[in-house]
Amino acid sequence: MSDTPVLEGSNKQQRYESLVSELYQDVYRYAYWLCKNQPLAQDLVQETFLRAWRSLDSLQNDKAAKAWLFTILRRENARLYERYRPDLVDIEDQAIAESDSEEPESKMDRELLHNAINRLESDYREPLLLQVVGGFSGKEIADILGLNNNTVMTRLFRARSQLKQEFGLDTDLEDE
């Protein structure tokens, strides 16, 4: 189960403020990796929280709030994709934070890694985003994506397997 906190407050406004404060960063990061563009990610997050505000009364279980928001965001992104496909990809820009302890000898090149993540097929990248950014379990990811649990686990395996292969880390035990 993801670590969605119980929303504080008894009235709608308080619940909404708690929702924003607790989850806006994860929602933005998920949006950013979905659309790969900062202004569009901001628009997606604005639209997601606007829809969340309008239908907050329908959220019965506060512990499901993060999955609920991520689902809204996925739908908004799909609508955006239908209407507007910009020719902008700024995934390589300053939106990715610099690590203050970068050691090229011992750490993978971050830029290469996020380019590699970006090149993953969306079928593989999305479960990875939901697991790492969203903190969702396999079952929760399956519910969000409308897949069964085994499919999700297979896709997670393939996502990491591809990343490891790109960096020469997916060695057979016999070779070691």
Partner: peptide, 27 residues
């Protein structure tokens, strides 16, 4: 080890300043 790097990249996206305040104004 690699998972640490993956998480660092995926969660290392800088969230724009003022986004939270803007979202709180939606109602």
């Amino acid at each position: 080890l690699m998972e640490t790097e993956i998480a660092s990249v995926l969660k290392g996206v800088v969230v724009p300043k003022g986004l939270r305040e803007s979202l709180l104004q939606i109602p």
